[in-house]
Amino acid sequence: MSGFFAVEHLELSFGGVHAIRDLSFSVEQGEVFAIIGPNGAGKTSVFNVITRVFDPSAGRVVFQGNDITAVARHQVVNHGIARTFQNIELFEGATVLQNLLLGRHRFPHGNILAQLCWLPNVRRAEEESRARVEDVIELLDLAPYRNALVAGLPYGVRKVVELARALATQPKLLLLDEPASGLNPEEARDLAFWIDDIKHDLGITVIMVEHDMSLVAEAADRVLCMNMGEAIATGSAAEVRAHPDVLAAYLGT
């Protein structure tokens, strides 16, 4: 079982709490894959294991044929995996532009001496980064906020900035943790279009954790439902929604 991306027999526990139990799934290139489940099901924990925030107690994560279960936490992005956070982790004291440029951190910008002297290679790298960031700003309509401090932005815009920052890393796989939570219906609709663009125009594979079933139904090719750390159903949105175990999990029986 190894294609584009796969999680194999993953286990994660915090003391007595089993956040993930024997979880396996795989995602094909170009797919939008949604993970749903009631609160505390372990969805965010899956992302945290993939991005090396937590060490799994068993199992492995394979991306493009490489076992990335034990890479350094700051190396994950170099494999082409970017993520957003359920509770928005932006750099509050910096502008939108600086936040997005930080998304480009993994690309070379010259060594420290070159940066101190602002040598031509640094200048070129900064120009290149700026140009790539502007592409993302245009894609996500962030131009009005380019030079605004994040600390003063409304919630909906912050969500978009965080998505933009993840895109600025030029990922192959994008992990979105509840991208639509807290958005108004109009913003949620924009998001659905953007996810479509990200998939079709940028060719980025997406795994998203989402509670909004209308967005999941619209955007996701396949859906995995988790409960108590386990996978209980996989399939199309309609199939998963009709699955008896899923209904039981949401009704708490």
Binding site: R52, Q75, V77, A82, L90, E92, G93, L102, R165, T169
Partner: peptide, 15 residues
């Protein structure tokens, strides 16, 4: 600045 404002995000961006 990234490390100051969010270590979590800094890790995820390759810092």
């Amino acid at each position: 600045v990234g490390v100051r404002d969010s270590e979590t995000a800094a890790h995820a961006l390759g810092i």
